[in-house]
């Protein structure tokens, strides 16, 4: 028996909006520690890892480890029917081939039940090593979203370089080139507006902008985004989910032939 009650149902709505265009079908794994997902996009260039810890749910009952295969587009369609202030409860009976999404309005005067068929998805989980990164950039998520959007109007790849001056985003295309440098600034009065750079050594990597733009759909989840870069690893773009967990996007770089 699985019953997960999330008072801040809007978080789950935002999570689906963030991943439904990147991944089509995925297994949601439920265990005592929480509700998680790990899935790659169809080209295996990007990977998304989601964790919603059990403590973040108002009620979390998971009698035994369960993996539920879902079509994320269909799941997003159902979650769109939930109000932003609704409480969302996920329910599944053992051995059942469906999952139920229950939406309760804040005043409990409207209760909705949406039942969706589950799918069999065979997906191997990848081992993601906890790595020491050469550079970690923490910046406003709206700023990062704006940069990815602006650069993608000029070119289709972005070079992200971190030096002691700051973090530089560069692109080039038929019409010309663009360079955006964000300097460390932790003097701002609001912490979520700060750009903080930790660097052990300079790093420069090239990525496809269309994946970065897809990741920025997670912007509504957090006012801060963290980019972790290392010369020989995929970049990690992380949006923390308040008090509950995180959504992490891993993107493989484009490398010299």
């Amino acid at each position: 028996m699985l019953e997960l009650r999330l008072v801040q149902g809007s978080l789950l709505k935002k999570v689906l909006e963030a991943i439904k265009d990147l991944v089509n079908d995925a297994n949601f794994d439920c265990s005592a520690t929480g509700f998680s997902l790990q899935a790659m996009d169809s080209s295996h260039v990007a990977l998304v890892a989601l964790l919603l810890r059990s403590e973040g749910f108002e009620h979390y009952r998971c009698d035994r480890n369960l993996s539920m295969g879902m079509n994320l587009g269909n799941m997003a369609k159902m979650l769109k029917c939930a109000g932003n202030d609704d409480i969302i409860t996920l329910k599944a009976d053992d051995g059942s081939d469906t999952v139920t999404f229950m939406f309760e309005s804040p005043t409990q005067d409207k209760i909705s039940d949406f039942e969706m068929k589950l799918m069999d998805i065979d997906s191997e989980h990848l081992g993601i090593p906890e790595a020491e990164y050469h550079a970690i950039v923490r910046m406003p998520s709206s700023e990062f979203g704006r940069i990815c959007k602006d650069l993608s109007s000029i070119g289709d790849t972005v070079v992200i370089s971190v030096t002691k001056e700051g973090v530089k985003f560069s692109t080039r295309g038929d019409i010309g080139t663009a360079n955006i440098v964000c300097r460390q600034n932790n003097t701002v009065d609001k912490p979520e507006e700060a750009t903080i750079i930790e660097m052990t050594e300079p790093v420069s990597l090239t990525f496809a902008l269309r994946y970065m733009n897809s990741f920025t759909k997670a912007t509504p989840l957090s006012s801060i985004v963290t980019l972790s870069l290392s010369s020989d690893l995929p970049v990690v773009v992380e949006y923390k989910i308040a008090e509950m967990g995180y959504i992490r996007f891993y993107l493989a770089p484009k490398i010299e032939e």
Binding site: E124, T206, P234, P253, K254
Partner: peptide, 14 residues
Amino acid sequence: QRKQATISSFFGAK
């Protein structure tokens, strides 16, 4: 010309 790598070439299956 740069070639797009895949995630699987960095992270092995568990």
